[in-house]
Lab assay of single mutants.
Amino acid sequence: ETEYTFDDKREADRAAKEAQNNGLRVHVTKDGNRWKVRID
C-alpha cells in the first residue's frame, strides 16, 4: 500500500488513472485542501 499527496486534483486524478490502468486498486480522498491517492 502506497500513499501520495497532491495539491492539485488534476495531478491526483492522473496518478489514480495511471494506477488503475496498471490494474491496481486506487482510493482518492480529500484531506483539507490537498488530495491523497492510496494505492493497494
Score class of each variant (00 low, 15 high):
10 R>S: 13
21 N>K: 13
6 F>N: 01
32 G>K: 04
32 G>Y: 01
33 N>V: 04
23 G>I: 02
2 T>G: 10
25 R>Y: 06
32 G>L: 02
8 D>Y: 08
40 D>G: 13
18 E>Y: 09
13 D>W: 15
2 T>K: 12
4 Y>L: 13
38 R>I: 15
22 N>P: 02
1 E>L: 14
15 A>K: 11
9 K>P: 10
8 D>K: 08
3 E>A: 06
20 Q>T: 11
40 D>L: 15
35 W>V: 00
30 K>S: 07
20 Q>F: 10
13 D>E: 12
27 H>R: 12
19 A>D: 01
25 R>N: 08
10 R>A: 14
38 R>G: 03
36 K>W: 04
22 N>I: 10
20 Q>H: 10
33 N>F: 06
24 L>D: 03
27 H>M: 12
37 V>F: 01
36 K>S: 04
5 T>A: 06
3 E>G: 04
25 R>M: 08
12 A>M: 03
1 E>W: 15
11 E>T: 08
17 K>M: 13
28 V>D: 00
24 L>I: 05
9 K>C: 12
17 K>T: 10
11 E>Y: 05
17 K>R: 13
7 D>W: 09
6 F>M: 02
28 V>I: 12
14 R>T: 07
2 T>E: 10
21 N>R: 14
19 A>F: 15
6 F>C: 05
31 D>S: 08
4 Y>I: 09
35 W>G: 00
12 A>V: 03
35 W>K: 00
8 D>Q: 07
32 G>M: 02
13 D>P: 01
21 N>M: 14
31 D>N: 06
38 R>E: 05
33 N>E: 10
29 T>V: 13
20 Q>V: 11
11 E>R: 05
35 W>F: 04
14 R>D: 08
18 E>G: 04
24 L>P: 01
29 T>L: 11
22 N>Q: 13
18 E>H: 11
6 F>D: 01
11 E>H: 07
18 E>W: 13
23 G>R: 04
17 K>S: 10
28 V>N: 01
10 R>Y: 12
30 K>H: 09
16 A>N: 02
19 A>V: 03
27 H>I: 14
16 A>L: 05
5 T>L: 14
36 K>Y: 08
9 K>I: 09
37 V>C: 08
23 G>E: 02
13 D>M: 15
1 E>V: 15
16 A>C: 11
12 A>N: 00
37 V>N: 01
1 E>R: 13
4 Y>R: 09
29 T>P: 00
24 L>R: 08
36 K>T: 07
28 V>T: 03
11 E>P: 02
18 E>V: 11
9 K>A: 07
22 N>E: 08
39 I>G: 02
16 A>T: 04
16 A>Y: 06
3 E>F: 10
2 T>V: 14
20 Q>E: 12
30 K>D: 02
2 T>P: 06
16 A>S: 05
27 H>L: 12
4 Y>T: 06
4 Y>N: 04
7 D>G: 07
13 D>Y: 15
10 R>F: 12
14 R>Y: 08
10 R>E: 14
40 D>E: 15
6 F>E: 01
29 T>N: 05
22 N>A: 14
5 T>V: 13
39 I>A: 03
38 R>T: 13
13 D>F: 15
4 Y>M: 12
37 V>E: 00
3 E>L: 10
36 K>H: 08
18 E>A: 11
26 V>F: 04
34 R>E: 04
22 N>T: 07
32 G>N: 04
39 I>Y: 04
25 R>I: 11
3 E>C: 15
15 A>L: 13
38 R>K: 10
3 E>V: 14
3 E>R: 05
12 A>S: 02
29 T>Y: 15
17 K>G: 06
28 V>W: 01
14 R>V: 07
27 H>D: 06
35 W>R: 00
36 K>M: 07
1 E>Q: 13
5 T>W: 15
37 V>S: 00
5 T>H: 10
6 F>A: 02
26 V>H: 02
9 K>D: 04
7 D>S: 11
5 T>F: 15
14 R>M: 10
27 H>A: 09
23 G>M: 03
25 R>D: 05
26 V>C: 03
21 N>A: 14
10 R>K: 12
29 T>K: 07
8 D>N: 14
8 D>V: 06
10 R>T: 11
39 I>D: 02
21 N>S: 13
27 H>T: 15
32 G>A: 03
14 R>G: 05
24 L>K: 08
39 I>R: 01
33 N>D: 13
35 W>N: 00
32 G>E: 04
33 N>Q: 07
23 G>V: 02
40 D>A: 12
9 K>V: 08
14 R>I: 10
33 N>G: 09
30 K>E: 05
11 E>Q: 10
15 A>N: 03
19 A>C: 09
17 K>N: 09
1 E>M: 14
33 N>A: 06
15 A>E: 03
21 N>L: 13
5 T>S: 09
36 K>D: 00
37 V>G: 00
40 D>M: 14
21 N>E: 13
5 T>E: 08
30 K>G: 04
9 K>E: 11
23 G>N: 05
22 N>M: 14
1 E>A: 14
6 F>G: 01
11 E>F: 05
5 T>N: 05
4 Y>C: 13
15 A>H: 08
21 N>H: 10
28 V>K: 02
37 V>Y: 00
14 R>W: 08
10 R>L: 12
21 N>V: 09
21 N>G: 10
24 L>C: 10
25 R>T: 10
34 R>A: 06
11 E>A: 11
15 A>W: 15
9 K>W: 15
39 I>V: 09
31 D>V: 13
31 D>Q: 08
36 K>A: 05
11 E>K: 07
13 D>I: 15
16 A>K: 04
25 R>E: 07
8 D>H: 10
9 K>F: 14
3 E>P: 04
12 A>P: 01
17 K>P: 01
13 D>N: 07
23 G>H: 05
25 R>S: 09
29 T>F: 15
2 T>S: 09
38 R>L: 10
25 R>Q: 09
17 K>Y: 10
29 T>G: 05
15 A>Q: 05
37 V>T: 02
1 E>P: 14
28 V>E: 01
3 E>Q: 07
39 I>K: 01
17 K>D: 07
20 Q>R: 15
19 A>E: 02
23 G>A: 03
19 A>K: 03
37 V>Q: 00
6 F>L: 02
12 A>F: 02
24 L>H: 12
32 G>R: 02
27 H>W: 12
31 D>W: 06
17 K>I: 11
7 D>T: 12
23 G>Q: 03
4 Y>G: 03
21 N>I: 11
37 V>W: 00
4 Y>A: 05
18 E>C: 15
22 N>L: 14
15 A>V: 15
35 W>L: 00
34 R>W: 06
14 R>L: 11
9 K>M: 06
14 R>Q: 10
29 T>R: 09
29 T>M: 12
20 Q>K: 11
19 A>P: 02
1 E>G: 14
31 D>L: 08
15 A>T: 08
31 D>Y: 06
29 T>H: 08
37 V>D: 01
14 R>N: 09
17 K>L: 13
36 K>E: 02
31 D>K: 05
21 N>P: 01
30 K>N: 06
23 G>K: 04
29 T>D: 05
33 N>W: 05
28 V>G: 00
3 E>W: 14
34 R>L: 09
40 D>W: 15
24 L>V: 04
15 A>G: 01
14 R>S: 07
29 T>I: 13
2 T>I: 14
22 N>V: 08
23 G>P: 01
14 R>C: 12
28 V>Y: 02
17 K>A: 13
35 W>E: 00
17 K>E: 11
11 E>G: 06
26 V>L: 02
7 D>I: 09
2 T>M: 13
36 K>N: 05
40 D>H: 13
39 I>C: 10
39 I>F: 07
2 T>H: 12
27 H>Q: 12
1 E>F: 15
29 T>E: 12
38 R>V: 14
26 V>K: 01
20 Q>S: 10
39 I>W: 05
1 E>S: 14
13 D>K: 07
40 D>N: 11
16 A>D: 01
24 L>Y: 14
12 A>R: 02
1 E>T: 14
14 R>P: 03
30 K>F: 14
33 N>K: 06
11 E>V: 06
32 G>D: 04
21 N>D: 13
12 A>Q: 00
10 R>D: 14
39 I>P: 02
3 E>D: 06
32 G>P: 00
5 T>R: 05
15 A>P: 01
22 N>G: 07
6 F>S: 02
7 D>Y: 11
27 H>S: 13
34 R>K: 11
11 E>L: 10
